[in-house]
Computed example of a mutant assay.
Amino acid sequence: MANYKPDLSCQNKFIPINFAEQILPGTFEYALCYIVENKLDLSGFDAWYHNDKTGAAAYSPAVMLKIILLGYAHGFISSRRMKTIFCS
């Protein structure tokens, strides 16, 4: 079983914004989250992670896919550019 970091997009401890409450139904971001979480089978990624007993936890493939697809939708094809936009 793969060891993933917890998805904290619904947390409200360190930031005053709950991401799940910020995206509005009918928007691209809402559709993207819905499709990645409910329609795509991402279980194939689990075979690549052999960190269940040793190693650090990895980011969830669902979270990474959402970031990459959102970046591509906004015209960012460089992961460094995505980092500066989404992580600042």
Rank of each mutant, 00 (worst) to 15 (best):
M1K: 13
N3L: 15
N3H: 15
Y4Q: 07
K5S: 09
K5N: 05
D7A: 06
S9R: 03
Q11C: 10
Q11L: 13
Q11F: 06
N12D: 10
F14N: 06
I15P: 00
I15T: 09
I17E: 01
A20F: 08
Q22R: 11
I23Y: 00
L24I: 14
P25R: 08
F28K: 12
F28E: 10
A31Y: 02
A31E: 04
L32C: 03
C33W: 03
Y34P: 00
I35K: 04
E37L: 01
E37I: 00
K39E: 02
K39A: 06
L40F: 13
L40V: 08
L42S: 02
L42V: 02
G44Q: 12
F45H: 10
D46Y: 10
D46N: 15
D46L: 14
W48L: 10
W48H: 08
H50W: 10
H50Y: 12
N51L: 10
D52G: 14
D52S: 14
K53W: 13
T54M: 14
T54K: 15
T54Y: 15
G55H: 11
G55E: 04
A56D: 08
Y59A: 12
S60I: 00
S60D: 03
P61C: 08
P61N: 05
A62P: 01
V63Q: 06
V63C: 07
M64F: 11
K66D: 00
I67F: 11
L69F: 06
L70A: 11
Y72P: 02
Y72T: 11
A73H: 13
A73F: 12
A73G: 09
H74T: 13
G75T: 07
S78P: 04
R80W: 05
R81Q: 15
R81L: 14
K83I: 04
K83S: 13
K83Q: 11
T84A: 14
I85H: 05
F86S: 10
C87M: 01
